[in-house]
């Protein structure tokens, strides 16, 4: 590149700038709805960045990322529930109470999601291809039914979060502040993804997608590489889930449903598979379509289906592919 910036970098930079500018302008015009809309875009893009790591770079078509998204949501919800009730989550063998601190919620989310993803990944990654798709779907469904069968945490009705979990400084209930938190985490996840993909580990991961045998011949076992990427991908999506629950003040089984898994996958595909900023472009397009098309017709799902079908059949590079040209193989 002679001028230093590729077309894709310009597109990526513009996307980030647009996402930052939108809520600032909305806040200046006193339109809180659009601030919350931009926050949704940032959170869902974060979930997509997580999935993209497994799906786009690792070639692991996980159809169960709603499990991690929902788990994050439930951690936030359950922590807030016990903090509000001043009751304990666990009394034996040691006492674990609730918490209304975002930093605590995120840490616990990361731990819980990592453990669950480790178990799910260890079983699912023994298989590949279509088996992997169906098994991740089935495990997500298992967690969905488990959530429904827990009456303490709302069962089918879900759980309300009366007070948004708090930051050590600043007021998280203030819409613009919460947007900056989500935006900051999105930037962090994008940065981590970019560094990871460019690292030795990232090279091994992408090689595992293209040819596992070749990777093994190089002396690197594919399984641990893929499992690590799967867990990391799940944790990022889980944090997004915790933010989503806090944004809505509610967590329910719908966050775990397989439609949600499909949606997160749609963000990645609409934006462009294996593009760092694909999930951001996809989530933004999805939310814009949903709120504006959904505004004048009830048949929004029909339009979404048609758009998705058209992208899959005819426009495989997604939105970033359309704006920045085909993926180059160096």
């Amino acid at each position: 590149m002679t001028n230093g910036l590729s077309r894709e970098q310009v597109v990526n930079g513009s996307l980030l700038a647009l996402l930052l500018a939108a809520p600032l302008i909305a806040a200046a015009l006193d339109e809180p709805f659009y601030v919350s809309l931009a926050t949704r875009v940032a959170i869902l893009a974060l979930a997509g960045v997580g999935l993209n790591l497994a799906l786009g770079y690792g070639g692991m078509v996980s159809f169960g990322h709603a499990a991690f998204f929902g788990l994050g949501g439930y951690v936030a919800g359950i922590a807030a529930f016990h903090a509000f009730e001043e009751s304990a989550f666990l009394t034996w063998p040691f006492t674990i109470g609730g918490s209304d601190q975002l930093l605590v919620v995120w840490t616990v989310t990361a731990l819980v999601v990592a453990l669950v993803a480790l178990a799910i990944g260890a079983v699912s990654l023994r298989t590949s291809g279509v088996y992997f798709i169906m098994i991740t779907l089935a495990f997500a469904q298992m967690i969905y039914y488990l959530a429904i069968s827990l009456p303490t945490y709302g069962g089918e009705d879900g759980l309300s979060i009366y007070l948004r979990n708090q930051l050590p400084m600043g007021d998280s209930a203030e819409p613009l502040t919460f947007f900056f938190v989500c935006y900051g985490l999105l930037l962090l996840a994008l940065f981590v993804s970019a560094r990871l993909v460019a690292s030795r580990f990232g090279a091994a991961l992408q090689c595992a997608r293209m040819n596992e045998v070749r990777l093994a011949t190089l002396g690197i076992a594919p399984f641990p590489v893929k499992l690590t990427a799967f867990v990391l991908s799940a944790v990022i999506t889980g944090i997004a889930g915790a933010l989503f629950a806090d944004l809505n003040g509610f967590v329910g089984p719908s966050m775990l449903s397989w439609h949600r898994s499909g949606e997160i996958m749609i963000f990645v595909i609409l934006g462009g598979v294996g593009r760092l900023f694909g999930p951001l472009a996809g989530a933004a397009l999805f939310i814009l379509l949903e709120s504006f098309v959904g505004g004048f017709t009830d048949r929004w799902q029909l339009i979404l289906g048609a758009v998705l079908l058209a992208v899959v059949l005819f426009a495989r590079g997604g939105l970033i592919g359309l704006l920045a040209g085909k993926l180059r193989h160096g």
């Binding site: 798709i133 749609i266 799902q301 979404l304 289906g305 079908l309 899959v312």
Partner: peptide
Amino acid sequence: DHLDQVLATFALILILSEVTRW
């Protein structure tokens, strides 16, 4: 590949459900 098949048939679910509701 399977990813395209999953997405396209997922899109079909959305379309068929909405048309049936219609």
